[in-house]
Design a binder for these strands. Structure first.
Length: 270
DNA sequence: CCCAAGTCCTGGTTGC
DNA sequence: TGCAACCAGGACTTGG
């Protein structure tokens, strides 16, 4: 699942490959992944534009282009954004463009949760609803405490809500809560100051660890060169239902929180 | 049939 | 009573 570390891995690679490159032509567009414009408009808007930078906001990739055009991409659940040889073929291609260096930018997505936006004058509007970047954003325990205050919902639901912090998904939420020794169902507003500080540290450390591992591949994720990440080897909670807790040895439990499968240690996490 | 999961949407509840 | 904030759950999607 592309969460912040996976998207950051792709961003790093695209930042080396794309700035200065010009869109020659858009070769494939599945209208389903477009929210703002028609396939024809996408071709017209992107043709001849030069990529300035490759930025990231939470799980979104944002590409400012020449002429004030912005390409905003969300990888959804199974999306890959690849820089490939034009001869290489893929299934489930939702968007593809030929660049002026002869390489091809391919957005592939089996489950169609991903979206491609082309906008003028700024990134897709959805970006404005995001809280600070969970990894690099300018926030700390004070911000977290203020956002948590008064909330009765589950702590995990708070972490998954991109309006609080942008970039955490189901995998890293479970890893962060395990590391912070906090129960996913703790009412979010009932944390002590010490627990809030522990949580803040854990969020940044687990995400940093994921970035360093070049992301986590549990099913579909590959980077822009088609390679899997390695963070899956470091998982202590996610996907380990019934396996021994690395801390106490007891079996990890599985419950559903905020509609998501949730693995945790009922002994160590409270 | 259920499960996986990110985001949007809806409808209900809470509290000022 | 009005209103905003909050919260739970469903819809969407395809393959295992």
């Amino acid at each position: 699942m592309p969460e912040l570390p996976e998207v950051e891995t792709v961003r790093c690679q695209l930042q080396k490959a794309l700035p200065g490159r010009r869109f020659e032509s858009v070769t494939e567009v599945d209208p389903f992944v477009l929210r703002d414009v028609s396939p024809e408009a996408v071709s017209a808007s992107l043709g001849g534009r030069v990529v300035r930078r490759v930025d990231r906001a939470g799980k979104f990739l944002v590409l400012p282009l020449s002429g004030g055009t912005f390409l905003t991409v969300h990888l959804g659940m199974t999306g890959n954004l690849l820089m490939t040889d034009p001869a290489e073929a893929f299934t489930h291609v939702r968007f593809a463009a030929l660049m002026d260096d002869g390489r091809r930018l391919v957005f592939r997505d089996v489950r169609k949760f991903g979206r491609v936006h082309v906008t003028e004058g700024g990134p897709a509007e959805r970006i404005n609803r995001l809280g600070p970047d969970a990894w690099l954003g300018d926030w700390g325990p004070d911000y977290l405490a203020a956002r948590l205050e008064g909330r009765t919902g589950a702590l995990k639901a708070f972490l998954l809500d991109q309006r609080n912090l942008a970039g955490i998904g189901n995998i890293y939420a479970d890893e962060i809560l395990f590391g912070a020794r906090l129960s996913p169902v703790r009412p979010a507003g009932r944390l002590t100051r010490g627990e809030v500080e522990r949580l803040a540290v854990e969020i940044k450390e687990r995400l940093a660890e994921g970035v360093l591992a070049r992301g986590c591949t549990v099913s579909d994720f590959v980077d822009s060169e088609g390679r899997p990440g390695t963070f899956q080897e470091s998982l202590r909670a996610y996907g380990r239902h019934g396996l021994p807790c690395v801390s106490c040895g007891g079996p990890l439990a599985r419950i559903v929180v905020a509609g998501r499968g949730t693995i945790f240690c009922a002994v160590c996490q409270s």
